[in-house]
Structures are given as C-alpha cells and as structure tokens.
C-alpha cells in the first residue's frame, strides 16, 4: 500500500489530524502535514482518507 496526499487540495479541515494523529498533523495555517510517508495500514488511516472533505488522501497498491 502506498499513500498519496494531494496537499494543494487540502482545505485544512483537520479531520485527518483528529482521526489519525500518528500520521497527520496541521501546519500553522491548518494545512495537512504528513508525519509518516509510509504509514501502517490501519482502520484509522482508512477512516481519515474516507472522511477527508477534499478527497486529498488516496491509496495505491504496492
């Protein structure tokens, strides 16, 4: 599994930082910061991607 985060799409909702704080944070302007480029595939990670209002978090096989 490979995670792809399209940062320019991010609207700073903070949902990912709330749900998967090990993987995501927000910078001073609220925009997503990826703490782990190669995170473990957890239910929280999938949930964060599913709720992202900007559809900015995706996964690719491999």
């Amino acid at each position: 599994m490979k995670m792809l985060v399209d940062i320019p799409k991010c609207i700073g909702s903070g949902q990912c930082a709330l749900i998967a704080p090990d993987v995501f944070d927000q910078d001073d302007n609220g925009i997503v910061v990826v703490l782990r480029e190669d995170p473990q595939d957890t239910p929280e990670l999938r949930e964060a991607a599913a709720v992202c209002p900007a559809a900015a978090i995706e996964f690719a096989a491999g």
Partner: peptide, 10 residues
C-alpha cells in the same frame, strides 16, 4: 485560508 489557523485540532 485566513481563518483555518484559528480552528485547527491543536
């Protein structure tokens, strides 16, 4: 964009 910083999870 000018406002998100006031409403972050942190």
């Amino acid at each position: 964009g000018l406002l998100t910083k006031f409403f972050t999870v942190r």
